[in-house]
Design a binder for these strands. Structure first.
Lengths: 218, 218, 218, 218
DNA sequence: GATGAATGAGGCTTCATTCAT
DNA sequence: AATGAATGAAGCCTCATTCAT
């Protein structure tokens, strides 16, 4: 799919594997803890016990380090997504049960990754590459879930089921992301209850998918 | 409502009105153009043709300048909201027409202000005061629109109309904000079509409000 | 004696007398409260309710304002000194009673003025003129007290009474000033007790003045 | 005794020793030459031929640099004090010879360090840590000399020899410090003659220590 | 004369990046 | 390859002084 560019300067040496791993862990942690604005290489160097020089031996720039972090995080998210989707698919659920299941699982996935996703969003404001990759990834990720929902296409009453599923799922995604503080405007977030939100979104989705424009007339 | 603190050391002379206006315009523009991360007072000073010192004669800090910009923007948004709401209310629409109207108008409002709202979101990550004021403002703003929708309470079939309206509107808000890039995760945004989104959201909302949990059984 | 240069630009107007007085009071207070390092004209202007422009109409510079403050303070100190000296002189005391009296009164005088003397010391480090005037004044002031002590010259056993009084009094002065924190090295100060210090200094002085080098032999 | 905090981010490489030494020398010199008020890091950077950044690699702040300078200076003073005291103690002098010796040596010590002590006093007005360390150090330093004098306790006629030595030595200290311009009020200083001052202080001290309150009666 | 807005040099500090060892 | 010291541009902020009104 996306053939992720290698942001690593050199192929991996034997023992340096460990130090690279320390580097990436420390960097991820710091990104999560401090946010992008307060993420500095000096601190990464200190926590990872890897010299600044070594960081620059591996990465052309701070940007590149972050890009690799993003890549790893999103790849990991992708793997978990696939597992979740497979697990759900096996249950062969009817739409009425599938929708809550999908929403809950997707929500939990985002919830699990919100720590790293949030700073990456900040980076997106500044790094085109991170922005693009994030977009691509999210689109793909969403598409997978949409496809899963479409396996119950026959139960959907909307005239254009593909289109309907696509749209409602993006709305669901927006609501979840906003709740998790993955948006900036997410001032408002934090008030409600997570379980309640998942429930409401399921209801909204089902009402929509099981509805038909004609029902709205008069 | 919120009694906005004065971040301004009010100038007592007159000629300075103009330069203050230049200052605020330049600052707003630059905030919109560059985003918070690249918003520097030196650049504001240059564009506004106002010395650094002058900025500090009026504002205690960079933070305070931004706070005033926020205040002005949100107050202006509030005024426009009030006008929009009044205009809609006068039409005495039925729910089926009210919902699209409200969503379209609210969407257009956010759309109009997205330029300044976006950097303010970034600031929220760093300035408690901006965060708090933004939250308060948004909550109030949303509440006004919810109240407007609730004037058709009788037409809503959901068992708890207030709760239903509250939840669906926040979902609508999330979807709009995400489309407008007011979220950080809004990588995905930009793909669809604005008018189509408004339309979909109206449909989703109506299907939900005119539905009833019992319909989902079986 | 010293013919103090006029640091005031213009002779005093009618109503502006008041504002000049406000200016000087505010400046003195702030100098005392904040110390020289944090003494700014903007703050003086604010507290005195006198515009920055007005300050510069009267004084060529910040330095000049401070110089006038010094002048006034030291003149006032001079007047009080004279009164104190006269009062003591009238008592016609013997040396054994005169010395404690002089030391106590002189100490109290310094104590009363320490608030303004301290920041003036800081200024001395930076303004030659303040340094010179301060020196001259102090020398004169000390000389007056020395002269008072010399009225009991006959009771002094030291071979060169003038010289002895001069030296011991400067030592007394140093000890008092240090105790009052008028020195920078006065880290050490603050430990003892003021009354005890006055007492000790009197004893030391008397032992010295009533002594004779020959006593120290063997 | 005092376990001096390390204000230094210890360099781990070797070539930096030299530049650190250059840095500290330049900083000390400039502090002495300019006084605290005009001591700027830019100038230190220029004179030491060390970049601003390097200074901040080693010190958290300007304050910390000065604290290290203080520490070094006072430690050096302490070492010299110890040597001086030992040297004097070995002579096993009688009080009449001990006092002049102690005063002369102590005076010379202060004289040698007055250059750096003066600006450190200014700093004390602003940095609590420098103030505290300076106080502690001075107290200890004085205590050592007092102890030396007390080895002739038997020759002292004052009823409370410890108390008497303590008080007179602090007076001596004040006089020396003032002469050396280590006080701010030390406008007056510079007039007399250093050797003469030492002599006078010795006489004053001896007259006091060899005296008795009863001698002053009548 | 008075007012106070405007100026701008200069201080401290941060941090991505380079480079000698 | 690794290390970490060195660099310096750039940001924020202060405050004495000037100057238009």
């Amino acid at each position: 799919m996306t053939t992720p560019k290698s942001y690593l300067k050199e192929p991996k040496q034997n023992r340096s594997k460990a130090s690279l791993e320390r580097l990436l862990s420390a960097a991820s942690e710091l990104l999560i803890e401090k946010g992008y604005k307060d993420f500095t290489l000096q601190e990464v160097s200190k926590r990872a016990k890897v010299s600044i020089g070594s960081i620059y031996n591996r990465f052309k720039s701070k940007e590149d380090l972050i890009r690799l972090i993003q890549q790893r995080a999103l790849e990991s998210l992708e793997v978990e997504s696939a597992m979740v989707i497979t697990r759900i698919r096996r249950k062969q659920l009817k739409l009425r049960l599938l929708v809550p299941e999908v929403i809950a699982e997707y929500g939990n996935l985002l919830n699990k990754y919100k720590g790293i996703l949030r700073p990456l969003m900040e980076v997106s404001a500044v790094d085109e590459v991170v922005l693009a990759y994030g977009k691509t990834h999210a689109a793909q990720n969403i598409a997978d879930f949409i496809q899963l929902l479409l396996e119950c296409k026959d139960e959907i009453s909307q005239p254009a089921p593909e289109r309907a599923v696509d749209h409602i799922f993006k709305v669901v995604y927006a609501a979840l992301a906003r709740y998790l503080g993955l948006g900036i405007m997410d001032n408002v977030s934090g008030e409600g209850d997570w379980e309640e939100l998942l429930d409401d979104l399921s209801q909204i989705t089902l009402h929509y998918l099981l509805g038909h424009p004609d029902n709205l007339k008069e």
